[in-house]
């Protein structure tokens, strides 16, 4: 299969700063169809602002449909369950695409929706492209599908991107927590790390919203902490532990919101 698309200029590398920021924070762009191409073909990506800007800046002859997926990168957004077939098809229907138009979908998002190369979705044809922004453009420019690497398992991607988002939050949390004391900083950062790991593992277990998953992970964390306190300490006043355990729950809830993306 070849792509009937050309690029007007050679794509530069994806900016390192944008790549780094995309790993650490969710950067949402408006969820909408952008571009002025008349070809009718659409590249379907998550509404990660640097990625959408990058694609539009290189004047690819196709339109960019940014899905409402929390501003995360495509691989992360698919790992955290934002790429859902029903929502994507609903978004596509709203755009009144031409029959026979090609849908270029990052491989991880396609895999999450169980779409594959050449599959017809309603009147449109799916074409898988790499998750990496530079790889996307290269694939389009060369008008030839590259050998796509299958995406990593979703739980591995959740762990990787979850740790990235956790690191991003740690950078913001560090100073306010340090204002209280160094032990508070250490305990807060450790709580964020453990709740992120736990959230990444249990994310697909429940279908509720990110905050509820965060609370669930927080309660599990509180249970584990209480167990550790019971086993390894003696004479510690439980009444004094209530507020810190509530703090752990709050951190976990917040990480759940962050994993859900900026919506």
């Amino acid at each position: 299969m070849t792509l009937p698309i050309t690029v007007k200029s050679a794509p530069p590398a994806y900016p390192l700063l944008a790549r780094l920021a995309g790993l650490l924070w969710s950067l949402p762009a408006p969820a909408q169809l952008s571009g002025d191409s008349s070809s009718g073909d659409v590249i379907v990506v998550s509404n990660h602002a640097p990625l959408v800007r990058y694609l539009l800046a290189h004047q690819i002859e196709l339109n960019v449909l940014a899905l409402d997926s929390g501003g995360l990168m495509p691989a992360a957004s698919a790992a955290f369950g934002h790429a859902r077939e029903d929502k994507v098809i609903a978004a596509l229907r709203q755009q009144a695409l031409l029959p026979g138009a090609q849908l270029l979908v990052p491989i991880s998002m396609a895999a999450a929706m169980r779409w594959h190369d050449g599959q017809r979705i309603e009147d449109w044809e799916v074409f898988c492209i790499p998750d990496d922004p530079a790889g996307m453009l290269k694939c389009i420019q060369e008008k030839d599908p590259q050998a796509l690497r299958p995406p990593l398992p979703a739980v591995v991607r959740r762990l990787l991107y979850g740790l990235g988002l956790c690191l991003g939050q740690m950078l913001i949390f560090a100073v306010p927590l340090w204002l209280f004391s160094l032990p508070t900083l250490a305990i807060g950062l450790a709580g964020m790390l453990f709740s992120s790991l736990l959230l990444a593992l249990i994310w697909s277990v429940s279908s509720c919203c990110g905050g509820a998953k965060g609370l669930l992970a927080g309660l599990m964390l509180v249970g584990l902490t209480a167990l550790g306190v019971m086993l390894f300490t003696e004479g510690l006043a439980w009444s004094g532990l209530l507020l810190p355990l509530l703090g752990l729950c709050l951190l976990s809830f917040w990480m759940g919101m962050i994993f859900n993306g900026a919506k």
Binding site: G188, L246, L251
Partner: peptide, 12 residues
Amino acid sequence: ALLSGYLLEGVA
């Protein structure tokens, strides 16, 4: 962060 710091301060 400030709220959780206040709550976690009890541990310290």
